[in-house]
């Protein structure tokens, strides 16, 4: 018997102002997967995360979360679904006017029914999980990029989500901090049995974190495989992306400098 996917992107197409971004994406995310989505900058990777969250609606095709059709949900049901999904943004997206404690407490205060003392205990627990204990009273502007990412991860875990989406988790971080974040993602998702989708274009992170790697190219998934198989793929686009070579199909599709 085949396993039921947690999320299924079924022939999803999306266009903005007539320009196609996703062109028939077919992707299944299974429980406890750590799926890494690779692809060029501006290729529609982050857009896929927004489609899963129902922030964007596909032009055609459908996104299913278990048996729910995401784009057909009412506002209240969509909000309920979103509370089961955590999202870590590229630039953390912490609420700048709230301190760390209030940023973490926000989803629980707004969606849960816990007392303030219970929320405090939960905040303390989640901050300890990401190694950020003692920062409760700090404002996001007082934290470094890596610290903000960790707080953002702690916030995403506040409602014990089934699925956590990571948009470029190591973007803008030094290699050491990048590895720390990668380890954190692995440990936390294993500890909490959470499924995660990680969008990145950093190969080291992708092979370190992923249990599956999917390659998005020209609006479609061209390869979806285990990291070892992915590394050995002879698909020219995948090869060029893995090796970082200048010559190949990716460079050929870049706009001519003279024409821009």
């Amino acid at each position: 018997m085949t396993e039921t996917p947690l999320v299924h992107l079924n022939q999803v197409c999306l266009a903005f102002d007539g320009k196609s971004v996703l062109n028939g994406v077919e992707l299944k995310i299974f429980p406890q997967d750590r799926l890494v989505i690779l692809g060029q900058s501006g290729g529609g990777k982050s857009t896929m995360l927004r489609l899963i969250l129902g922030i964007l609606k596909p032009t055609s095709g459908e996104i299913k979360y278990k048996h729910l059709r995401v784009s057909r949900l009412s506002r209240s049901k969509l909000n309920l679904l979103r509370s089961r999904i955590g999202m870590v943004y590229q630039y953390s997206a912490l609420i700048s006017s709230l301190n760390v404690r209030d940023n973490l407490a926000l989803p629980v205060q707004e969606l849960g029914r816990k007392s303030e003392s219970e929320i405090d205990a939960l905040v303390e627990q989640k901050l300890a999980m990401v190694g950020m204990s003692g920062t409760e009273s700090k404002l996001p502007s007082e934290l470094s990029g890596g610290m903000r990412k960790r707080v953002s991860l702690a916030r995403a875990l506040m409602l014990d989500p089934e699925l956590v989406l990571f948009d470029e988790p190591s973007a803008g971080l030094d290699p050491v901090m990048s590895s720390v974040i990668d380890e954190l993602i692995i440990n936390l998702t294993e500890k909490t049995n959470t499924t995660s989708v990680i969008v990145t274009h950093e190969m080291d992170s992708a092979f370190r974190i992923g249990t599956r790697i999917a390659m998005l190219w020209q609006g479609a998934i061209i390869l979806d495989d285990a990291p070892d198989q992915f590394k050995r793929s002879d698909h020219p686009v995948v090869r060029q992306f893995v090796t970082g070579g200048v010559d190949g199909p990716m460079t050929e599709t870049l706009p001519d400098a003279d024409s821009t």
Binding site: N79, L106, L111
Partner: peptide, 22 residues
């Protein structure tokens, strides 16, 4: 506007909190 640019509004929406209400 600043919250919108910094994706804070979207983050609130992504948490399942109505950003208009909030």
């Amino acid at each position: 506007g600043t919250m919108q640019v910094a994706e804070e509004v979207e983050a609130i929406e992504a948490m399942g909190i109505g950003p208009l209400r909030f």
